[in-house]
């Protein structure tokens, strides 16, 4: 299946969901939802004295007539909540012989569609040689373009080279296998800074979670191309599982420290894992 077909598939999946927007996310530019601050909506919120620079159109002339004081009306701010979707575009997300890239595309499309359903604006960032936005990412996911997983740089380096310009108080969702040697906290602090909510979705292939069968295996790092010959036996398999568990635990702990939510999915079981996104209050039924 092509990228487009995966996006369409994800878009179809996303029709059932809407992005769960937290209250803290209701701060933004003019939009379709009422924000916490005063704005330009028609919903009256409060009065205050006129200050130079205020829009003359908001002066309540009736109050001025009665009290001879320039008073302006405050209306509830009308905002659009925003979703910043950060996709790990490294080569490991397109691990051979797995459905990892397809699942990533479907999940991204699902989240984009859910954001549309929640009347959220959304932006899609690809973490390659720095963060760059995907083409047409403001549109429906099926219109997105330029989605590829060919970067050899790990996620933490992308933050260093060119960090994403994330909207303040937006909802930020990082979709990655998190297979980067960097410290989770350094990445999460960048994500959590000014965010209304941060979700870290670890998307792993089944092959990432299970060690190879016993015997001699030549392991090839999909990003660096580094090779390692190893004899896998029961001990090694157990050590691998322990290492994976420790890795997940480190991200989970870091997420809790930064107020983020950590969700781990298996690419081959994406549809069955969607309830986990609901439990994490990332999605709600549309």
């Amino acid at each position: 299946m092509s990228t487009r077909e995966h996006l369409l598939s994800g878009e179809a999946l996303g029709q059932r969901y809407a992005l769960a927007v937290p209250q803290t996310a209701l701060a933004g530019t003019t939009g379709s939802q009422l924000g916490r601050r005063a704005g330009n909506s028609i919903d009256f919120q409060d009065y205050r004295e006129y200050q130079p620079g205020d829009d003359l159109r908001t002066i309540d002339w009736g109050v001025f007539a009665r009290t001879d004081r320039l008073t302006i009306k405050l209306f509830r701010e009308e905002v659009n909540p925003h979703l910043d979707l950060l996709l790990d575009a490294s080569r490991s997300m397109a691990l051979e012989n797995t459905r990892k890239s397809a699942a990533t595309l479907r999940l991204a499309a699902l989240l984009g569609t859910a954001a549309e359903n929640a009347h959220c604006t959304h932006a899609t960032w690809l973490a390659g040689d720095g963060f760059q936005r995907a083409a047409n990412d403001m549109m429906l996911p099926s219109a997105w373009d330029g989605l590829g997983f060919a970067s050899r740089r790990p996620l933490d380096e992308a933050f260093t080279i060119l960090p994403p310009r994330l909207r303040r108080l937006g909802i930020r969702v990082l979709v990655s296998d998190l297979m980067c040697p960097g410290e989770p906290l350094s990445i999460l602090r960048r994500l959590a800074d000014g965010a209304a909510a941060v979700f870290v979705v670890q998307l792993l292939a089944q092959a990432d979670t299970e060690p190879p069968e016993h015997g001699n295996v030549q392991l090839v790092d999909s990003e660096t191309g580094e090779e390692r010959e190893i004899f896998v036996d029961a001990t090694v398999a157990a050590q691998f599982r322990e290492a994976l568990a420790r890795h997940r635990e480190s991200w989970d702990v870091a997420c809790r420290q930064t107020g983020a939510r950590f969700i781990s999915l298996v690419a081959e079981k994406l549809e069955a894992s969607l309830p986990a996104l609901e439990e994490a209050q990332l999605l709600v039924p549309a």
């Binding site: 012989n97 092959a207 030549q218 790092d221 004899f231 036996d233 001990t235 090694v236 050590q239 290492a243």
Partner: peptide, 28 residues
């Protein structure tokens, strides 16, 4: 049967064991 099967992994970071097993694990 024992020749090295090539297998691409997302990262080698999970294969950097601190303690190697008795028979296996080491690069040979």
């Amino acid at each position: 049967r024992n020749r090295y099967r090539r297998r691409e992994v997302s990262s080698l970071m999970l294969w950097q064991f601190a303690v190697l097993s008795r028979e296996g694990g080491a690069k040979v």
